[in-house]
C-alpha cells in the first residue's frame, strides 16, 4: 500500500468503513455491524472521524473516489455480506430491477427529484413505494454513474437519451404530486 492515506485506522480499512456506511444507510442496526467486525462503537467512531479527515487532507481525491467504489461493493464485504436489511419481496424485486434496468433506474431518479420538489422526503418516498433503502439506491447509483462515465467518451447520444427519459419521467411524477396537493400555484395563469 503506497498511499499512507489508505492505511487502516484501528484496523478498519477504507473498504470496511465504506461498507459500514452503506450498511448503516440501508438501515442495518449498528450493533450488529460492530459485532460482525469485532469492534465497539468507540473504535468505529474514531475511525469514522479520522477517515473523514483523510478525505479532507487528500488533494488527489483518491480516498473519496475509492470510498464511493467500495460503498457500492458493500454486499461483497467478507464480514458484512451476511447483514441484510429486512426487505419485502417486492422491494427485493425492485432492487434487482434497479440494478439491471436503466430505464427503471432513471424513472426512480426522476420520481425522487419530483418528490423533493413537492415537499416529500424523496428517500422515504422511494422506501415507501418501492421498498428500496437509500443505501441500496446510492450503491446502485454509483454503478450507473460508472456506466455514464464510460459513455462520456464514446456514447454521448446514450447520455442525452437517458437525461431526456429521466426528465420526462420527472415531469410525469411532478404532475401526479401536483394533483395530489390540489394543483400548482400558477395553474390559473394561461397564455
Amino acid at each position: 500500500m503506497s498511499n499512507p492515506l489508505l492505511e487502516p485506522i484501528h484496523g478498519i480499512s477504507l473498504y470496511d468503513y465504506a461498507a459500514v456506511s452503506a450498511k448503516m444507510a440501508s438501515g442495518i442496526d449498528p450493533k450488529s455491524i460492530y459485532k460482525a467486525l469485532g469492534i465497539e462503537p468507540a473504535v468505529f467512531e474514531e475511525a469514522s472521524a479520522l477517515w473523514v479527515t483523510r478525505m479532507q487532507e487528500d488533494s488527489t481525491f483518491e480516498v473519496t473516489i475509492l470510498f464511493g467504489q467500495y460503498f457500492s461493493e458493500a454486499d461483497k464485504h467478507p464480514k458484512l455480506n451476511g447483514l441484510q436489511a429486512e426487505v419485502s419481496e417486492e422491494g427485493k424485486a425492485n432492487l434487482e430491477k434497479l440494478k439491471t434496468d436503466r430505464y427503471f433506474y432513471e424513472e426512480l431518479c426522476g420520481a425522487r427529484q419530483a418528490a423533493y420538489e413537492y415537499g416529500l422526503d424523496g428517500a422515504q418516498w422511494i422506501q415507501d413505494n418501492f421498498g428500496i433503502s437509500l443505501g441500496d439506491f446510492q450503491a446502485v447509483a454509483m454503478k450507473w454513474s460508472e456506466v455514464q462515465a464510460q459513455d462520456i467518451h464514446n456514447n454521448t447520444e446514450n447520455i442525452h437519451h437517458f437525461v431526456d427519459y429521466q426528465q420526462k419521467k420527472q415531469a410525469e411524477y411532478a404532475a401526479k404530486f401536483a394533483s395530489e396537493q390540489g394543483g400548482n400555484v400558477a395553474d390559473d395563469v394561461e397564455f
Partner: peptide, 20 residues
C-alpha cells in the same frame, strides 16, 4: 428536516412558475 422539505416545496412551486 421539516423546514427543508417545506423550503424544497416552495422552491418547487417557483420552479413550476418558471417552467410555465
Amino acid at each position: 428536516r421539516g423546514y427543508h422539505r417545506m423550503k424544497a416545496a416552495v422552491l418547487g412551486q417557483l420552479d413550476s412558475i418558471q417552467k410555465k
